[in-house]
Design a protein around this nucleic acid. Structure first.
Length: 494
RNA sequence: GGCCCCAUGGUCAAGCGGCUAAGACGUCGCCUUCUCAAGGCGAAAUCAGGGGUUCGAUUCCCCUUGGGGCUACCA
């Protein structure tokens, strides 16, 4: 088998969204499986739609996901440059070749002329095809017009009969009637190549063996095949990945909430979880494999033949669930590292405090992580470990502080038993409280719930004794005092 | 409109002529429990419709319907 060389070729017109990320991922998995190379190529021929920073955003999203490339921006390689805007010569040369061989021609029709023709044909109900007006211009005529400085595009001469057959690894053979292809534009009037042309020239020059891309390009493929043929290039293998759709089955867009990789990052997804989720979108593990699967486990059994033909609606819930799974099993140190920015963002710590509080932060992460699903949630659920209680959960306040008989005395008893403790770890605190419950002949919940409310301001938290140990004796006593005081005052008012 | 692709529960999906049609998320019960998660057990829920082919179709073919894509001097 020929050396596997695949490419991911984003257009820098915006952020990397999950569809693009999935395409990149599948290319990457495929390259890894066959020990091939992944080439990253930036398709920046449309200068008008370029977005500032887009390239760096895309690169950083890919890096964050752990999808690395063997050749491309920041890496270089033997087939560079990897920006189409820097490969102009290649396209010009290829177009000249076609011109010379009479497989393409200059067309001087104006955009207006074409538009008029388009309207006319639409009214007649026929699909638009360029009528070929400039096809038979004499060389002299062309030369003269060019010298006059008339604006022109270059069109390839389309086939007039037969079929174009595209062999797709995922879909099998797909055939198109040649007659539907007109003399389409390969070089725009500003001298830059049209997408289909640049793509073919580059895939050939970069010796791409497999073109793995989104399904939206399937209809472009016969045109590209025509170009391959004209240029006498060898045609690579194609694999068109089905689209990823928004929950309403429409094309992904900003109005569908988070769709950009960066947005998932910001809400506190772990890159491994997103990659795992994306892996499952269109590909499924072997029966004996878990759905919680790392690329290393995916690669050996990955194959394009197994990729689904059906468009997939993405489901944030499953992604979030996966993320929660990763949260609990993740390496504690790296989880802590990734959590810190979220703590800072939430105002729990300042960046200056990171060093001194590092261990405490890690301990908080360690106890809170298994009941939250994202880093964002983790930060929110950790607030009372860093900040004093400013308010109590409303329902909890009612139920445990105001309506529960003798709660004030109960909290005081708890407080008292804490003061006697020398050690303040989970075991010591718990056994002290268990003893108290025995003495008082009460069930755990009776004292645990109000105490939780006093210490966290919430009705939901990790195990109470873990919370206490982590908070430390001083804070526990303070917060109990504060709660006792609050309860006293509200009863005096009555 | 034309051309192309696709069609299994709400979602991701396994299946590739004969199965009580896997599994996961979600939903709903129950268990466990100091709350919430997690975990365990269980339940409801799918072959879009119609024709063929065949002894037999979720599976193969055709039509309809639905969804998506392309139809640009966007990629």
């Amino acid at each position: 088998m020929k050396k596997v060389r695949v490419r991911f070729a984003p257009s820098p017109t915006g952020y990397l969204h999950i569809g693009g990320a999935r395409t990149a991922l599948f290319n990457w998995l495929f390259a890894k499986k066959y020990n091939g190379s992944l080439i990253l190529r930036i398709e920046d021929t449309d200068t008008e739609r370029l977005k500032e920073d887009s390239v760096s955003q895309i690169l950083s999203s890919l890096k964050w996901l752990g999808i690395d490339w063997d050749e491309g921006p920041e890496k270089g390689g033997d087939f560079g440059p990897y920006f189409q805007s820097q490969r102009q010569e290649l396209y010009t040369k290829a177009a000249q070749t076609l011109l010379k061989e009479n497989k393409a021609y200059h067309c001087f029709c104006s955009v207006e002329d074409i538009e008029e023709e388009r309207q006319k044909q639409r009214q007649e109900g026929t699909p638009f095809r360029y009528p070929g007006k400039c096809r038979n211009l004499s060389p002299e005529e062309v030369k003269a017009r060019l010298e006059q400085g008339l604006s022109s595009v270059i069109r390839i001469i389309g086939p007039d009969a037969g079929q174009v057959l595209v062999e797709d690894i995922i879909r099998g053979p797909v055939s198109f009637e040649s007659e539907q292809f007109d003399d389409f534009i390969i070089m725009k009037s500003n001298g830059t190549p049209a997408y289909n042309f640049a793509c073919v020239v580059d895939d050939n020059a970069m010796q791409i063996s497999h073109v793995i891309r989104a399904e939206e390009h399937l209809s472009n493929t016969p045109k590209q095949c025509l170009i391959y043929r004209a240029l006498e290039y060898e045609i690579p293998l194609f694999a068109h990945l089905s689209m990823i759709l928004a929950p309403d089955r429409s094309k992904l867009s900003k109005r569908h909430g988070a769709t950009a990789v960066g947005e998932f990052q910001e809400m506190g997804c772990l890159p491994e979880a997103l990659v795992n989720y994306l892996t499952l979108l269109g590909w499924s593990p072997l029966e004996e494999q878990s759905e919680i699967i790392s690329p290393a486990q995916t690669i050996p059994s990955f194959s394009l033949e197994k990729v689904s033909k059906t468009a997939a609606v993405y489901d944030v819930q499953k992604l979030i669930w996966l993320n929660g799974q990763y949260m609990t099993t993740y390496d504690l140190e790296s989880l802590t590292l990734q959590t810190i920015p979220f703590f800072i963002q939430a105002g729990l710590i300042t960046s200056l405090e990171v060093g001194e509080k590092r261990e405490y932060i890690r301990d908080v992460v360690s106890t809170v992580r298994e009941r939250v699903r994202t880093l964002g949630e983790l930060a929110e659920a950790s607030r009372y470990f860093f900040q004093d209680i400013v308010s109590y959960d409303e329902k909890g306040l009612e139920k445990y502080f105001l309506k529960q008989e003798g709660v004030e005395a109960l909290l005081a008893k708890g407080r008292e038993c804490l003061t006697t403790l020398d050690r303040f770890d989970v075991e010591s605190v718990e056994s002290a409280y268990r003893q108290l419950m025995d003495d008082l002949k009460i069930k755990g919940g009776v004292i645990i719930h109000p105490t939780r409310l006093a210490l966290t301001g919430r009705t939901v938290s990790p195990g109470l004794f873990e919370v206490m140990a982590l908070l430390g004796k001083r804070k526990c006593l303070e917060r109990l005092d504060k709660a006792i005081e609050l309860i006293r005052i509200s009863f005096e008012k009555d």
